[in-house]
Design a protein around this nucleic acid. Sequence first.
DNA 1: AGGCGAATGTAACGGATTGGACATTCTCGA
DNA 2: TCGAGAATGTCCAATCCGTTACATTCGCCT
Lengths: 274, 274
Amino acid sequence: MTIDELIAAASDRLTPVERRIAEAILADPTLLAFGTVSDLAQKVGSSRPSIVRFGVKLGFQGYADMREHARRSVSAKLSRPSQRIRQQDSSLGRATAALTEAIRGLLDKIGSEQLSTLGAPMVSANHVWILSGETSRAGAHAMFSGLTMVRPNVHLITEHSSGRDLSGAAPGDAAIVFDFARYRRHTVTAARSAVDLGVHLVAITDGPLSPYAAMTETWCALDIPAIGPFDSSVPSVAIAEMLVAYVARQLQDEARSRIDRTEALWQATEIYWE
Amino acid sequence: MTIDELIAAASDRLTPVERRIAEAILADPTLLAFGTVSDLAQKVGSSRPSIVRFGVKLGFQGYADMREHARRSVSAKLSRPSQRIRQQDSSLGRATAALTEAIRGLLDKIGSEQLSTLGAPMVSANHVWILSGETSRAGAHAMFSGLTMVRPNVHLITEHSSGRDLSGAAPGDAAIVFDFARYRRHTVTAARSAVDLGVHLVAITDGPLSPYAAMTETWCALDIPAIGPFDSSVPSVAIAEMLVAYVARQLQDEARSRIDRTEALWQATEIYWE
DNA sequence: AGGCGAATGTAACGGATTGGACATTCTCGA
DNA sequence: TCGAGAATGTCCAATCCGTTACATTCGCCT
């Protein structure tokens, strides 16, 4: 059992000071492995016996016992790199490798200037309409959830009501579509309609042969790795978050005050635990 | 200069006992970082002053000084990956570096065996209930969208109707929750209710101090990087997809036939473009 | 063989560390 | 407002650590 797990098991029985101790240990595991009781006490602004009692509460015989445990786990981590190689061909290893490669590809394929090109319409638009196919809905959702936090008039178009929802679109608006092969008929036609209405379309798709590439100049291609039997939506989510970050940076104070208002509202309605 | 290099530089001036000390340190670097003078003396079969003199010969002021040096190099090895993030300075670069690191962290923190532990309940459960907070909804959505493709009776619980929706839950079911600090009150209580109903809870959260860690043994902690002003949901989505892949692999033919049926249905309804 | 210097171990001391007994403060409820 | 019990801090004793001074042993050269 690791220290983390022991802390987790006791987390609901911890006193305030003990909770601070736990946080310090979790934030920097070397504190426990290297530090003395006095070091920890000073770090958390508490007294030495509190540290010792914390160790006892976790099931150790004393601080020395707990430190010994922490040292063993650090030793294990230090010797693990050789084991990591072995995991490389496990399915988990392959999945993370594919995802890492996909994320790295984002940086290669999409420079900072292209990020601005893609993001600009969402800064200046009156309304932003978000479209997506089934498999890429996670990206659209991330986009929607983030964008509503930093600017008004953001609409997520569900497939069932695309015709009705888009009827309010007009020139000066922007639409962003997430869709990859095989493209959804509904999504393609919705995007087409948006363009016909004079909306500036931004497309996150998978290549020049995508139907969306023909509709707009502002599009980008992502490499979509497969995780198990399905395509990953990680690249979609990643670029959605980067675009949101870009829009937030451009809108500056406007975005910040909007975030603050939402935060205040959430606090007031006690939406958070603790 | 590392300890190894210092030893190499002084190797031709070492006495027999000092040579044995050097060998012991090179064989197990943690001896220096963790051990006391007495520990080393006993390990080498020598006396304490010999250890101290060895440190002085290497250029340190004493044993304490040498040990401090060893500890710093151990800390550096443990924390080097996270420091790499900060070296990038374009916002796009920082974002991709943070995401890459987060993905790599998945492999570190979650071994193949833990993936099985987390995924097993979703293979055998009668019903699977998916819960999530606001920021982590993308992960929940990826989970839902993937899981419905490979097995029946998957339910996504929206915040507004959690009480009503969960009423059908029963022992033999599994629930998976995606939620991170600050935790959503609704989600915490919903998870609690599920546990009380005898449902096996799987929690994707952010650390041992999470309220979910106290509710179940099957949980994992993710490192959540920030992209712009918001927390990223990329790690959630990634682990959701890995879990879906795991479930699909376990269910084998059952999953495949289900995917095929869905595909056929989609083809028949001409849901795809082209 | 004897003596000299390096190498190593023994002993002692000041300081730091841990763990526990005791006192104080805080918190919650009657 | 008061009191009981938990939480936390202060203080102390026993131990252990690192360091240094001193004694002993070992090896080599004359």
